[in-house]
């Protein structure tokens, strides 16, 4: 940009802008860094900086069978809910994406509404609903509840990918004699696959991390990892949780990196 004719104006604006941006960046990054550092402490408390460094809490993690059990449940529910969300969500996205009809727009808003609604109220209403039906809480009820809150991610990302699709490609394929199913398999699907994948990834993370729905739909037999961690933290500040957090943070960053390579995740979210 050219030299500004108002030095004070420029200085105050740029100064404040970069100061606030730096503050935001520190605020975003500091917690992650601090948890990672604290997880290597050799002490018994969450003091920062730690008195010394060791892998003892990662060793303790191997023995924490309650966390292992909750992790297994969380993974099972997340995988099933993501599969269901992709199956239902992609079909729905195909139907509403390019349609100008009012009913399609309304359905689109309905499918995205769990993103805005307080999930805790939905969790409570699901518990009431299932108990009215006489269904005991189980992995099945958890999967159903999680699917509702995960579907919006799949729908939103698939619709976005479909909107960018060139209609001429589909018309060209049809005019060359391809059936609709063949066109879908050979043209549409490969082009929207990155959108489906990134939506599925976000849905998986949303389910794995979900608390407000699990809070009401799980019991002792279906303990979920985020809830187990929360209850451990409410009881006492456990350094094992820091080690577990360290592993989950590294796994998340790994997942983001893989998704970035496969789908350009960041371009889809910005």
């Amino acid at each position: 940009m050219s030299r500004s004719p108002f030095p004070l104006d420029r200085l105050s604006f740029e100064g404040l802008l970069h100061l606030l941006a730096a503050l935001a960046l520190v605020l975003l990054l500091a917690p992650t860094v601090i948890v990672l550092v604290v997880s290597f402490t050799d002490g018994l408390s969450l003091r920062f900086p730690p008195p010394g460094y060791s892998l003892r809490w990662y060793g303790e993690l191997m023995e924490a069978w309650q966390l292992h059990y909750a992790l297994k449940n969380s993974l099972t529910v997340a995988v099933l809910a993501t599969a269901l969300a992709i199956g239902l969500g992609v079909l729905a996205a195909l139907a509403v994406a390019r349609s100008p009809r009012l009913s399609a727009r309304l359905l689109d808003s309905l499918f995205l509404s769990p993103l805005i609604l307080p999930a805790l109220a939905f969790g409570l209403s699901s518990l009431m609903f299932f108990s009215l039906l006489g269904w005991p809480v189980s992995v099945a009820t958890l999967v159903v509840g999680h699917t509702v809150v995960c579907v919006p991610y799949v729908v939103r990302n698939t619709v976005a990918a479909l909107t960018q699709l060139q209609p001429a490609l589909l018309e060209g394929s049809a005019s060359l004699g391809a059936s609709r199913l063949y066109t879908f398999r050979r043209i549409t699907l490969p082009l929207i696959r990155p959108g489906i994948l990134s939506g599925g990834f976000l849905a998986f993370m949303a389910s794995f991390d979900n608390i407000p729905v699990s809070l009401f739909l799980r019991d002792a037999a279906t303990d979920m990892l985020p809830i187990r961690m929360w209850q451990d933290l409410e009881g006492r500040l456990d350094v094992t949780i820091a080690a577990l957090s360290g592993i989950l943070i590294v796994a998340t960053i790994g997942g983001i990196a893989v998704m970035e390579r496969l789908t350009g995740l960041s371009r889809r979210l910005v």
């Binding site: 917690p31 929360w230 820091a242 957090s245 943070i249």
Partner: peptide, 18 residues
């Protein structure tokens, strides 16, 4: 993106440490 996809429990836990 990293905090967005990191568990809320972990991020809150970090604030207890801070």
């Amino acid at each position: 993106l990293t905090p967005l996809l990191t568990s809320v429990v972990i991020r809150t836990f970090a604030w207890i440490v801070i």
